[in-house]
């Protein structure tokens, strides 16, 4: 019979103390917003009403604030394009140079629009966790050198018990 089957789990007060302290930090953070926090969230969005970010929001796209930004954005894009067209040196007669100039102008306009509209958000469907691909999450990678994967799992399940 493997050794760990007969092993009695030894309580770890230091582990418990640290977990309790982290919980206190989290509880303090959850208690930080004022009593009007929930009311502001409820007022900002309801399933039956189009929601908007509250006053002072930033970084989530000016288009999300008001529809009238669309013509402003279009006017800005036209103005940027016109200015760049006027200030860009005339391309040579070579058609390939014309195409390069047009591509560069379009790319610069797109970049300006991106900066203005902040459209580089990731969609919810995209997975953004684990940006590095080194870990495959196997038990053996996380096991201590002296422990088998089964022994580690036994210790962890005994430690966390019913809190899973």
């Amino acid at each position: 019979m493997p050794e760990h089957v007969n092993k009695t789990h030894t309580p770890d007060p230091a582990f418990d103390d640290t977990v309790a302290l982290v919980d206190r930090v989290a509880e303090a953070d959850r208690g930080e917003p004022d009593t009007g926090f929930e009311a502001r969230l409820i007022a900002s969005a309801r399933p039956g009403v189009a929601g908007k970010i509250g006053a002072g929001a930033h970084g989530w796209g000016p288009l999300a604030r008001s529809w009238w930004m669309l013509p402003v954005a279009a006017a800005l894009a036209f103005g940027v394009f016109w200015i760049r067209t006027e200030t860009t040196p005339a391309p040579g007669t070579d058609p390939s140079l014309n195409r390069v100039a047009a591509t560069m102008t379009l790319a610069s306009v797109e970049a300006d629009l991106d900066d203005f509209l902040f459209v580089d958000e990731l969609t919810d469907a995209q997975s953004v966790f684990a940006s590095d691909s080194d870990a495959d999450g196997s038990y053996d990678e996380l096991a201590l050198p002296s422990e088998t994967a089964d022994a580690l799992l036994f210790d962890l399940l005994a430690a966390y018990g019913e809190s899973l």
Binding site: E32, L41, A45, P47, G54, G59
Partner: peptide, 29 residues
């Protein structure tokens, strides 16, 4: 508040944490 606490722990910015929480609920709605 759970979402707020998670965002606050990451960003150390109460205003940004509240904006993110609002954004999540707007998306949910």
């Amino acid at each position: 508040r759970r979402i707020y606490a998670l965002a606050k722990s990451r960003l150390h910015d109460a205003d940004a944490a509240e904006e993110i929480t609002q954004s999540v609920f707007v998306t949910l709605a």
